[in-house]
Amino acid sequence: MPELRVCALYPDLMNIYADRGNLLVLERRCRWRGIDFSVTGSGLGDRLDPDVADLFYIGGGQDRDQTLCARDMAEIKRDALHAAAARGAVILAVCGGYQLLGHSYQLGEETLPGVGLVDLITVRSDAPRLIGNAAIEVELEPGAPRVLAGFENHGGRTRLGAGATPLGRLLRGHGNNGEDGHEGVRRGNVIGTYLHGPLLPKNVWFADWLIRAALGLGEPLAPLDDRLEAAAHAEARQAAGV
């Protein structure tokens, strides 16, 4: 029986936007299909084994906690995350975690280091936070665009470098910086996004895509009865106005 092994980075600090909902959706949707599931945590000061998981997850946190995690991640976990990405593990970073995937996150006088997995920088703006329901169009498989809907709430403005590809095209909301119409970042199986709310319960098709990608499965997963999930997705899209 296959098993999805998830490693949650800083689960006690980077969890502010109900990030456990994302992990719960992965767990249930694996188990309902007879796929084993295990989750481990990696906290401040813990060395990270790049082979410990098929999917690494980092959520959002308060400024103080994010600062602690940024330094720890850059100093202790950077190499392991690069190694995990290089062998095709999924790395999903949401909101505050997303801001740490790039080169740096500048917060006023202070600049937090990023892990450099993707070519982007983030700068905290004095302008109002970007808050609200949002929806984006993503094309994870060529020629098959799908919609992700969620909620964003961030003070940082993220700009992608020339070598980076956004996760999706903004349909509604603010996205990376409120200006360029881009949301998130994707480099292979490394994905960053500002969409929470949490993201996966209202976009279970994306949860299934992540499970497949993490396990390297070619064929689609067995279908589930997703009537309630479809209603939640429709509501989230409607809230965003899409």
């Binding site: 319960p201 309630l228 939640a232 509501e235």
Partner: peptide, 18 residues
């Protein structure tokens, strides 16, 4: 409610039989 589906999904994933 406006997010009835979200709440139902929450309860389903919490372990309430659908």
């Amino acid at each position: 409610g406006t997010r009835a589906g979200e709440l139902a999904v929450r309860l389903k994933y919490a372990g309430v039989p659908p």
